[in-house]
């Protein structure tokens, strides 16, 4: 069941990625100005409506129930568990990026949290102030020189870019845990991720609600926030950091 789910999810993301990365390149001048490149806006907006419906009628109520019933410490523990399972995959991505230190940190975290954190439910690595060491194949592609590509909103997943969508697919395979035979972690990875997302949706309910249901254009707001945060994570200069307060006429305000 899980394997099937995993395959179909992969196929879905893959097809979206292929469809969307087929064409369209951004005008270099617009790119340099940090403009948002969204040639699939119409499709993306339809997907956004679908995702909003999914959230309103399924994900949001389920997450409210989940955080209401499950004590906060357990929600955190399940989140830690999902995070810990992703560490070997992070280590592989750091290696691919040529970042030996990062790979060592990811493996170190995995070892500490798996052993001392009871299979990853606890997070002693953070108590020991170990570096976060979180990455993904989208970042690997960035390190290899791939541009961000076009903005896409993925069904049931949310905001992404064509580059990062490819990264999501590849990350199904980069995690060495999924290559092991007869290992319990393989069947746990997706459910753990779903439970983690439920916990996040419940814990940060007000913040997400304000973006999805209180902003005038939740699609534009989600896109703006995702892209700014993603560029920040990848250590890219954002157009926002160059906003010069002396260049705007504020007379009258």
């Amino acid at each position: 069941m899980i394997a099937l789910l995993k395959k179909s999810a992969t196929a879905l993301v893959l097809s979206t990625a292929v469809l969307t990365s087929a064409c369209a390149t951004q005008d270099p001048a617009a790119k340099a100005a940090g403009e948002i490149f969204d040639p699939y806006e119409n499709t993306n907006r339809s997907v956004h409506q679908f995702n909003k419906g999914l959230d309103r009628y399924a994900f949001r109520p389920a997450s409210k129930g989940y955080v209401a019933v499950v004590p906060p410490d357990m929600v955190t523990a399940f989140g830690n568990f999902a995070e810990n399972l992703s560490k070997p995959g992070d280590a592989v991505n750091y290696l691919l990026q040529g970042n030996i230190k990062g790979a060592g940190q990811a493996l170190g975290r995995f070892a500490v949290n798996t052993v001392l954190g009871i299979g990853g439910l606890g997070d002693p690595a953070s108590d020991f102030k170990m570096a976060e060491a979180r990455t993904d194949f989208g970042e690997t592609l960035h390190v290899w020189g791939a541009g961000e590509g076009a903005y896409v909103e993925l069904p049931a997943y949310g905001p992404s870019t064509t580059r990062d969508a490819v990264g999501i697919v590849v990350d199904f395979f980069t995690n060495p845990l999924s290559q092991l035979e007869n290992n319990p972690a393989e069947d746990l990875q997706i459910p753990a991720e779903v439970v983690d997302q439920l916990g996040n949706r419940g814990t940060y309910s007000d913040t997400i609600d304000s973006i999805l249901y209180e902003s005038a254009d939740s699609y534009a707001q989600g896109r703006q926030i995702y892209l700014q945060n993603r560029r920040f994570e990848l250590g890219q200069e954002d157009a926002g950091s160059e906003i010069d307060p002396f260049e705007l006429d504020t007379g009258g305000f």
Binding site: Q224, E233, G240, I243
Partner: peptide, 8 residues
């Protein structure tokens, strides 16, 4: 975390 008030 990189998200700025002005653009938002």
């Amino acid at each position: 975390e990189g998200v700025n008030l002005l653009l938002t």
